[in-house]
Design a protein around this nucleic acid. Structure first.
Lengths: 219, 219
DNA sequence: GAATGTATGTTGAATTTTCAACACCGGGAG
DNA sequence: CTCCCGGTGTTGAAAATTCAACATACATTC
């Protein structure tokens, strides 16, 4: 177990937890390590959603199957990242997706109910874990909300401006750097890359902004 | 305080809490009632995001202001509904929006930190509240995720089909009823109403579905 | 320095969406 | 019954997006 500490330390779920408290705490919340080989599933659609998982080594993919049986990969979860926390915390009866090992992996499975219910000895770190979990789920919420806010605009120009104005606000100035290249920004805004490039050029010609690669200035 | 119990009882945050435990518990989590008159703000953009609010009477609106100072109403929060929980739980320094009374109102403000940190006497209902809060935030997450999943499709037809297939899956059958009229569905899918109507007709002509108002059957 | 690859910008045609306007239907009010 | 109204379907023109293809710039590699 000890050899996973460097990974556990990197996971925000354990922020503020001293490593020396980890083993006690893992017992407290029912943590157990599972080894899975590539292609094997950790949980399948329809399984009860009771566990929060964390990738210790390898990788896990989140797979969704639609009405007609078309499979698609929803997310790729790497070391120190959590999976299944939304479903477990939402208290839904059955998982709407599956988690499949993307490589030979080891994952830490924790019982969500035992995280949210204080243990009898009311350990200090326990309430910290709850706080961290809540913070993680709420932060994801903010990220989603922001994306919806932006992509619900109807035109490329509106989406782009909503994104840039928000970025300006966040970074506190008219000049700022975005973390995406053109293709990634197009993917985020759910628009066509070439159309996006064209729109940026147009805004530049109209004197609304200046830009150079990932650097933007609103005028 | 007692006269608010019927409202409190309706809020999912207090699911599984006995009413007779409420007053102890509210003390435990630092609950206090605030009366605000119409137009007065409860929290302003930039304020620390430390409180979870609940509307006891009246209504509250969530207001966002963009870079250029354009104000827009993001959400309307009615009795027994929560507000600010996402921001407080995400642990962000400052609110990105404001909460303004939409009518003369009374709201219950609770200290988020005192919810997430177990009180010294480790009361049973306290852990239930945490569980409920986590569940609320996570559920909102699922709702957002589903909406993104659907609206990230590029065409009206794809969005519509993604929505209907998901609805079919959720309701467990090819026949189901949707909770939206045409305009509302268009708003949810972020498309034009008339275009949506046209697309539904087309799918019907192509023999892909049957529909009658809010009743749909996939073939 | 030439070859290669990647990121970005540009363009025009095909497709799709939006917008405005109107027709139709059924229910409720008077 | 008739009138009115909200919800829905239809249509055609205008606007915007997507798509494919190519141009350009720059960095890397050999």
């Amino acid at each position: 177990m000890k050899n996973y500490y460097p990974i556990l330390e990197r996971c925000p779920l354990f922020n503020g937890i001293r490593m020396e408290d980890l083993s006690v705490m893992l017992g407290c919340i029912g943590g157990r390590v599972l080894s899975v080989s590539k292609g094997q599933s950790i949980s399948r659609e329809g399984d009860p959603a009771t566990h929060v998982g964390m990738v210790l080594s390898g990788a896990v993919r989140m797979v969704r199957e639609d009405y007609y049986g078309n499979r698609s990969i929803v997310a790729h979860i790497g070391p120190a990242e959590l999976f299944g926390e939304t479903y477990a915390c939402a208290g839904i009866a059955a998982l709407p997706i599956s988690f499949v090992a993307d490589a030979d992996s080891q994952v830490l499975l924790m019982d969500c109910r035992r995280i949210t219910t204080s243990c009898c000895n009311a350990c200090a770190f326990h309430s910290r874990i709850i706080f961290n979990l809540l913070q993680l789920v709420a932060t994801k919420n903010l990220v989603f909300d922001q994306k919806i806010q932006i992509t619900s605009k109807r035109t490329t120009r509106e989406k782009l401006m909503a994104y840039l104005l928000n970025e300006a606000k966040l970074q506190g100035g008219r000049s700022f750097t975005i973390p995406y290249d053109r293709q990634e920004l197009a993917d985020y805004l759910e628009v066509d890359r070439s159309g996006l490039s064209a729109e940026i050029s147009k805004l530049r010609r109209e004197g609304i902004l200046e830009s150079e690669k990932k650097q933007f200035t609103l005028l």
